[in-house]
Amino acid sequence: MKNGLFIFVGAFATLALSWAGVVLTAHNQLGGLTQYKDPVDDALYPQPLSGLANQGRLVYQDLGCVSCHTQQVRREGFGSDVGEHSRKWGQRQSVARDYIGEGSVLIGTNRIGPDLRNVGTRYQDAEYFYKLLYAPETKFAGVPMAPGMPAHKFLFEVRPVGSVQASHQAIKTLPDGTEVVPTRRAQALVAYLLSLKDTYEYPEAKPFVESAEKKEGH
């Protein structure tokens, strides 16, 4: 090869082809996905996040939760995400339609911590998440929470207890007359985590028959 132009054009064509073949094709196929209208109750799924949960999504993004947590449930029979003898990280695999309403899609690449796509179905108690964020190394209802997770104490405010009684939001009162109260960001983040539940069964999310047969074989 002696010709610089040839290298240039070839390099351009290579990348343009892969862009067209991967990104553009995927966009053509998935970019038009819309909410699914339930034939029975006429509701649209997935439902959009509430305002507070959407703010929480931004907190999730700025704290880099995606460094350790995925938000994608693999299909039954591939890993141990869903199914009978599994971690029960959801009722079904994640599908493209689950993500269409999200401003930034952070499906993640690391499972240093558990998958969070359906964490809102596993724990429905905001108090659990506050305690988890404040002191993950402790126990909740006698069960260890997440000893490997860093605490996020900066999402909480320590302030003197008011004259009469502790705030209803306080997750903890300390002996020196102060209480630990979640900040607005913590509230938003917890609202977001509670909202994470893909429970609606889209037609495309029905499990493959093949994987059911495979299970019997085991």
């Binding site: 290579t14 995927a26 449930v73 693999r74 493209a96």
Partner: peptide, 26 residues
């Protein structure tokens, strides 16, 4: 190397919530 590498990215999405061809092509 250039052509194959340019297409290989999709393999990172095996088992992910994307059409199966993305991971297969990658």
């Amino acid at each position: 190397f250039a052509i194959c590498s340019a297409f290989a990215g999709g393999a990172r999405l095996i088992g992910g919530p994307v059409p199966a061809w993305v991971a297969t092509l990658g």
